[in-house]
Structure formats: C-alpha cells, structure tokens
Design a binder for these strands. Structure first.
Lengths: 147, 147
DNA sequence: GACAATCATTAGCTTAGCTAACGAAATAAA
DNA sequence: TTTATTTCGTTAGCTAAGCTAATGATTGTC
C-alpha cells in the first residue's frame, strides 16, 4: 500500500458517502430504502436464500437482516418457507409484488445517478463506465458469495 | 439517458452501499463514523463554516448537522464562535484535537479500502484510479459548493 | 414599531446497524 | 439413549443518523 492507494481510497470513500446521500432523495417515492433495495435485489436474483446467507451477502449481522426481512414480509414483498431438510433454516423468496417493486424502485433510485452519468463528458463517462464493473467487485470482500 | 447509463448507475449504487459497509467495520476503533468523518473533514479543510453551509456541503438538513456538531463539540473536536456581524450564525472550526483525530480516523478508515486498492491487478488499479477523481466530483450535486 | 425572513435548535419520529441473550433444531459425544 | 454442543433465527435494547414540524433569537423591511 502506498500514498496513491490511500488517495484513491479516500476519494472512493467520499464519493460513496455522497452518492448515497443523493439517491436517498428519491426514497420517499419508492418506499424502498437503500438497504431494502439491496437485500430485495439479492433475494430476487439470488433465488430462495436463508437469513444467514443473506446476512453474509449483505455484509451485516443476522439480526439486522432478520428485522429487515420481517418488514419486507409485512409489506408482502417476500415470503418465507421452512426448509424441510433442516427445519432451523427458513428460505426467503420474493413475491411477484416484491419482484415488481424491486425493478420499479431500483429504476427510480438509479435514475438519479443515471441522469448524472448521462451528463458526463464522453471521456468521463467512459472512465466511469470502465471503473463501474471493477468497483462493483471491488466493493465486496474477497470471500463474498457473489464475487 | 440510456440503458447503459442505468447499468453504470446501478453498479455505482451497489458499490457505494457495499464500500461503506466494509469501512464501517473499523469505526469502533476510531470512534468516528462516516458522517462525522465527512463533516469533520469539511470543517477542517473548509475553514470556519456555518451550520447552514455545512448542511449544504453535506447534503443533509440543518437539524442533522446541528446535532452532529453538538456531539463533535461535546467531544472537543470542534468549537463554535458567534459571528459578530450576524449574531444568528455560528462559525464552526476544528480544534487541534479534532484536526488530529480526523487525520488518524480517516487514515484507519481509508486504509481498509486502500488495502483492496493495493490488491488489484495493475490494470484494474489503473482503471479505478482514473475513475476515482471523476467519481468524487460526480458524487456531488452540480451546484455543490465544493465542486 | 410591527412584520417577515433567516439561522439554529429542540422535540419526536424512522431506519438501520450492533451485541447479548434465548429458544428450537440438528449434531456429536457419553 | 440421554446429554452436551453447535447452529439458525429471533427478540430486546442500544446507538447513529437521517427527516419534518415547531420555536427562539436575530436581522431586515415596510
């Protein structure tokens, strides 16, 4: 690690904070916050998944996910099913309503960023585009299940 | 805006969420959370600054900053001073302790990311480095005071 | 001098993270 | 077979950080 790596990291950190503050402004419309959107996304695309797996995928502790899932279930966005093999685990899956809302909510939320992407100069846009995929992998721990 | 812009935005969104979750793991050591670190940074480098200006710079509402500053003051990291011209406004400045802690805390927090930057392949690292500066500007609203 | 606007704070709400403690189920050991 | 241990998920209770609405203090305006 060197000084330049720190500078890069510092910029990424700052950018991450401010990016999320920006998209938060559209939350009120979708009813889906960043955490819910992220978790619901894993549920929708990651198929039936247990609480533990979801916690690991989201890099948070089980109690945090447990509550979040309870709320998503409350709103009819996901459903649970006891695993018949191991009755300790419950498998979470998205309902069709959840699937629909995810796509709409993500759309609205991400549109805020997409606007700005569209507003970049061609060079900058290209630069950000090339980094986005790298960043996505980079943002997850090395042993992350989705890596 | 097109489909690709959305894809880029989607990746940035996801990356931002997971980046911050990663660095949060070092919070316990520094005692400085992301919000405090970010605000303190603006105070340290942005000189004496009012609550309103700070709120705008941080893209949050005044009450949020008001409380945050109160806590920073509580911990001796910043001090306030009534503006003699306009006695409604108070100017916030960092104490030397605050300045020191900012640098240390940022260091620790960012080190978590810097490790990973250092672990990238040369091509990826280059890609991320080039995007970092763009991202930093990109993450702020167009009319942002620090833009 | 009265009224309106601005700056900051307070009060009270929500979301989202955490640890600690616990019950239920599965697995290992005696 | 019983007992002990581990694992999965939940509950309880704490903290941080955002928000809106309302209020006080000051400034500016008519």
């Amino acid at each position: 690690m060197n000084a330049t790596d720190r500078q890069i990291a510092d910029r990424l950190h700052s950018a991450a904070i401010h990016l999320l503050r920006q998209v938060r402004t559209v939350d009120s419309k979708s009813g889906l916050t960043a955490s819910r959107l992220s978790a619901l996304s894993v549920i929708v695309f990651g198929g039936p998944i247990s609480i533990s797996e979801l916690a690991e995928a989201e890099q948070v502790r089980p109690p945090s996910i447990s509550r979040l899932v309870k709320e998503l279930e409350w709103e009819g966005l996901v459903s649970r099913q006891r695993d018949s093999q191991d009755r300790r685990v419950t498998r979470i899956r998205a309902t069709s309503k959840g699937r629909r809302l995810l796509l709409e909510g993500r759309e609205r939320r991400v549109a805020k960023l997409a606007e700005r992407v569209a507003g970049l100069s061609p060079e900058e846009r290209e630069r950000v585009a090339k980094a986005a995929a790298t960043l996505e992998r980079f943002s997850l721990p090395a042993d992350h299940p989705l890596s």
